[in-house]
Amino acid sequence: MAGKGADTKDFLDFVYSFHESMEQHKVLLVYEGEITHQITKAFTSLTENNMEVEEEAHSTQKKVFHVMVECLQNVGKHAENYRKNESRKDGKGAFLLSRTEEDYFITTGNKVNSEKVSEMVEVLEKINSLDRDGLKKLYKLQIREGRLSNKGGAGLGFIDIAKKTGNSLNYKFIPINSDFSFFVLSCKISRNNN
């Protein structure tokens, strides 16, 4: 937090540049912290109300809602907090909702164990290489053969997002240190698809 003198000034400047960045990137909603079920419900219902007021197409509203739930639950379930020796808490991460004339973007960022990166890249690349029919097939295979993990995930989130949005998953892994990487996932939902 802000200290005295120069620190305080830096912090106040940070708030202004933060505000400017958010405007520049057309961010409607931004959050950094633990992603709980309550947060997921609050953000989705807020966004639903806003889209309703702005008379967004019904199909777009549904897709935005759907992708928000999947993305927020992914972070809540899979983010590595690296607070060792602490009973498991909800995953921490960043969440951003932004909107341009043509699209909505739902973006999350969270720490993941570096050991998982290659496996995740493989899954994401596979999903991005498939067309609609391929995604439908993969979804059916996974729902039949996958098992619910102890975190309550079905391994279907990424596949479902790609299938419902019709857009590929834009992602990046940024190494933090030898143990952890920062995983950024940005999902695009076109506003004029119906």
Partner: peptide, 8 residues
Amino acid sequence: YFNTASSK
């Protein structure tokens, strides 16, 4: 509406 965990 149902999420993917519910779909299972």
